[in-house]
């Protein structure tokens, strides 16, 4: 059976994008170990509401690790201490009695804070709109089995496609680079014959958009890969580089 723990939460509170933020401390008592991190915040929010204060704003939705909405930077790690898990999949049994747990929003010029721990990640949509697709309209496509695709390729494409677009890679990167996110989509589509047709156009467009939106350059620290909740590999970044350099030399 899980033990109950008590600890101090230091949470970043910030009214709006332009306003100054600060840490506020909250003491949490007797939290069961099988409470998820977000449920623990629910408990805190319930407390705050009952005291007539405004609850802490944070993004969350599916709470099963797939929607990519949750985005907390806990004790120096995007999505907290576990590997291969999102914030919503962290359970309090990972922490200890008497801990000080610091919770911050994603910090990157590309992700301005909206309020408290909620940030604006629309930049990712813009990168996707720039080219993260295969240009097919609905209908008029060949039979699904018309093009055999080697299982290894399909599996590798799936590894890349597992990206949930949460932005942990950007949050973890000391350069605020979105390379892992961009490369995951570029890789997925470059690996599949359907996507190869416009691979060059895609990689150039997506990368240009990433640069334009103010994300940094990759310096291969691998922090993104280490913190990615879906363990997306930096070999995708190498593939993106290869594709990009190849496309530029072709021009």
């Amino acid at each position: 059976m899980d033990k109950n723990i008590s600890f101090t939460l230091k949470v970043w509170r910030q009214r709006g994008p332009k306003e100054k933020g600060e840490f506020k401390s909250y003491y949490m008592e007797d939290i069961p170990g099988d409470t998820s991190f977000l449920e623990m915040l629910d408990i805190l929010n319930e407390m705050l509401i009952n005291r007539g204060e405004e609850p802490i704003v944070f993004d969350h939705d599916c709470r099963e690790g797939i929607c990519g909405m949750c985005s907390l930077y806990i004790n120096g790690h995007p999505h907290g201490p576990a590997t291969g898990a999102t914030t919503c999949q962290i359970y309090m049994r990972r922490f200890h009695d008497g801990d000080i747990i610091t919770v911050e929003p994603w910090r990157s010029a590309g992700f301005p804070v909206i309020r408290d721990l909620m940030v604006d990640r629309r930049a990712f949509d813009k990168i996707m709109a720039a080219g993260g697709y295969v240009s097919v309209n609905t209908g008029g496509v060949p039979d699904a089995n018309a093009i055999p695709i080697p299982k290894e390729k399909a599996d590798e494409a799936m590894d890349a496609a597992a990206c949930i677009g949460c932005g942990a890679c950007v949050a973890a990167c000391k350069n605020g680079s979105a390379m892992l996110f961009v490369s995951a989509k570029v890789s997925q589509l470059a690996l599949l014959p359907q996507g190869k047709v416009e691979a060059k156009r895609r990689v150039k467009a997506m990368l240009a958009k990433m640069d334009e939106l103010g994300f940094g350059a990759c310096t291969n620290t691998r922090a993104c890969e280490a913190e990615c909740p879906k363990c997306v590999s930096i070999s995708n970044i190498a593939r993106l580089n290869r594709q990009f350099i190849g496309a530029k030399f072709k021009d």
């Binding site: 097919v136 209908g139 496509v141 699904a144 997925q188 996507g195």
Partner: peptide, 23 residues
């Protein structure tokens, strides 16, 4: 239903495949 699978494959959805390369 069949057209959906065709559409999704064309979009690059990485469905699971057999070693022969088919779905």
């Amino acid at each position: 239903s069949n057209a959906i699978i065709d559409q999704c494959v064309a979009q690059g959805v990485p469905f699971a495949r057999e070693y022969g390369g088919l779905l």
